[in-house]
Amino acid sequence: IVTFKITISFIALGISGKSQLLFALVFTTRYLDLFTSFISLYNTSMKLIYIACSYATVYLIYMKFKATYDGNHDTFRVEFLIVPVGGLSFLVNHDFSPLEILWTFSIYLESVAILPQLFMISKTGEAETITTHYLFFLGLYRALYLVNWIWRYYFEGFFDLIAVVAGVVQTVLYCDFFYLYVTKVLKGKKLSLPA
């Protein structure tokens, strides 16, 4: 959605380049298993699509439509996310191996990667409607996993504590936004916050 939004509007205004950089890093470090294991054609295709879209978005923001990127409001300090997340992925993981640590890093990083975007909206006090749709579906995507994990726990005995805890954190971070989306955007209003 976000790649599409920038492509058709020719502007990167209101989109956090930092969040998009973090997502590119998330998908790169998580999908290194493209080289080591094959799950399904769907799985492989989606991984490639996510990686391609995240890099395309970063390219659009920082290269093609750089002049329209609102860097002055994109001031979240990403090192405050990357450093603790990097440390935690070394300490709490399933297996102390390079691929597994990078996978863990991507899971932890994804859970907080939206913070620069939410921070940006809180600074500017508003967001375009298509941006809010993007954020809603990005949040919904992980929230639906919570339901899926309960299902898989009961019917497949599957339980991945790292993914579940990070998924819960990620969903909680979106809750405030979900509230604004339902109470404002779905009622036809633009998302704008009181000053």
Binding site: R30, S37, K47, H94, G157
Partner: peptide, 10 residues
Amino acid sequence: EYNVYQHDEL
């Protein structure tokens, strides 16, 4: 038993 090192989720 699920092999947790083969991550099948996106």
